[in-house]
Design a protein around this nucleic acid. Sequence first.
DNA 1: CGGTTGTTTCGGTAAACACCGAACGCTTTG
DNA 2: CAAAGCGTTCGGTGTTTACCGAAACAACCG
Lengths: 185, 185
Amino acid sequence: MKTLLDHPDVKAFVLHWGEMGTQWGVNRSVSQIHALLYLSDRPLPADEITEALGLARSNVSTALKELQGYAIVRRVHVEGDRRDHFVAETDLWEMLLRIAAERKRREIDPTIALLGELAERLRHDETAPALVRERIGRMHEFISTLGGWYEQVRCLPKPTLVALMKLGGKVARFVSPLKGKSKER
Amino acid sequence: MKTLLDHPDVKAFVLHWGEMGTQWGVNRSVSQIHALLYLSDRPLPADEITEALGLARSNVSTALKELQGYAIVRRVHVEGDRRDHFVAETDLWEMLLRIAAERKRREIDPTIALLGELAERLRHDETAPALVRERIGRMHEFISTLGGWYEQVRCLPKPTLVALMKLGGKVARFVSPLKGKSKER
DNA sequence: CGGTTGTTTCGGTAAACACCGAACGCTTTG
DNA sequence: CAAAGCGTTCGGTGTTTACCGAAACAACCG
């Protein structure tokens, strides 16, 4: 059957996206399927994905579940078709924020929790080397701050985000007029 | 020999950091070594790392090279010792920026380049579905913008970064007074 | 210049992971 | 209430990746 992937550039995109995924700890099938759905002009049933990418049906199923876990793909119903169909989020900001949210939830938050425990325990532990106590404490504080920042930024309306991004380094002018002008660090 | 890792909390930190790494596509040895160096109060020679973590000497060697590739670990000389010693960057902002810089260089920049090519070619390709052309174009623009933003932010002096981070969502007030107040999206 | 100490390279092995396909269960349909 | 369609689960398999240990290489010292 004819699919999007017949086009060489589409294929290049999907393959690259797949490799990209692997480098960030996402498995190839998952990211390939995401790429395919992102380019599709209509919801696709699992079968078609299977055929287009040459993957096993079961693999596609679990990959789709994973993508839904990130909330960047969702199930939709199509008139007169019993099968589930899937569409990808096409707003790229939304996509990025959701991926970030989920990775934070899965990996960062537990890390913060652990660091919190360790830092707390070390605070009263006289036997531990001073530098260890300080550095684990700093790490905890640092990651917590980043996490807090993300939670705030994530709640800004999208147009604001776009505007901030376009501002780039110039935002610095607002925080401390003198510092905002440097181009070097 | 007695090492930092005798302390259970230090061990917990190192192990967790190692697992963390694997989830982000960094191999376990590399991130464990990084964690160990981060907590160490003095430069460590490869031997000590080998012994402390129970890794093969060769593995430690390649991992150290990798860490130096990220510029978050550097070689130092210690008086009266022929061996190379290694220390980790302890400024966490610096660490984060360097990791980001390197990953951008390795993964994002090539992606932008590829997307640029594809987008350019598709612009003149009448046979390609309209949505594909648009979406690959959008993706290219989006990632390029993010990349540009990073390059600017990266050059801000560190205190400014800290200040901006502390501001959190409040930065939004400067870009468009009405939008900055929302807590929901 | 040997011998010593330290580092890197490389081929093989073991562990992790992705992926497949068969079997199972649920839902719809004739 | 069979039978077919669809989705998921699960055990096994192949591929990738990390890791080890031996050998090669380089620097230094007597």
